[in-house]
């Protein structure tokens, strides 16, 4: 009987460790600056203006893009639809301008959607990631991703 009790205890202990270990760490959503919770639409900025936002430690969502190429469903269309539905504004800047900025953890390829929290990059979509590809091409998938990290 004692042996059985010990075995149950050990099993329970293991289960508790697994359970707590497997639990996803709760992601704290950030709130971007109030001025960006407005009727939807891109705010086109130059690289120097984005640099100012970063230096001012602002929180915002940024879209950087190449101007030549397009996907079967342009990423810009997906973002436009999202912004329309959610009254949120996203800053946009051509990649040629963006890459001149001196930012830690900078993005290697465009297009990308980058979340800045107080001037620091916390998350971004990677143009070279299969996992991120659907988020560029589907509004719901983009929304799921963005709203994991940003209050809407």
């Amino acid at each position: 009987m004692k042996k059985i009790k010990n075995k149950i205890l050990i099993l329970l202990t293991i289960c508790i460790f697994i359970f707590t270990g497997c639990q996803q760490k709760k992601v704290d959503k950030i709130r971007i600056e109030d001025k960006y919770y407005d009727k939807g639409g891109f705010i086109e900025l130059k690289g120097s203006e984005v640099e100012e936002l970063i230096n001012n430690k602002e929180s915002f969502v940024l879209y950087t893009y190449n101007f030549f190429c397009n996907m079967p469903v342009p990423a810009k269309d997906i973002l436009n639809k999202y912004m329309e539905n959610n009254n949120i504004r996203i800053i946009s800047v051509p990649y040629e301008e963006y890459k001149k900025l001196d930012i830690d953890g900078n993005i290697e390829y465009a297009p990308s959607v980058i979340i800045f929290d107080k001037g620091k990059i916390i998350k971004y979509l990677d143009a070279e990631s299969n996992a991120d590809l659907p988020k560029y091409q589907n509004v719901d998938k983009f929304a799921d991703w963005l709203e994991t990290y940003v209050e809407n």
Partner: peptide, 18 residues
């Protein structure tokens, strides 16, 4: 082929801009 959106353009994973 590269992954993600770059793969849609068929950009090579090994011989590319980098």
């Amino acid at each position: 082929k590269s992954e993600g959106m770059r793969g849609i353009y068929d950009i090579d994973k090994n011989i590319n801009e980098k």
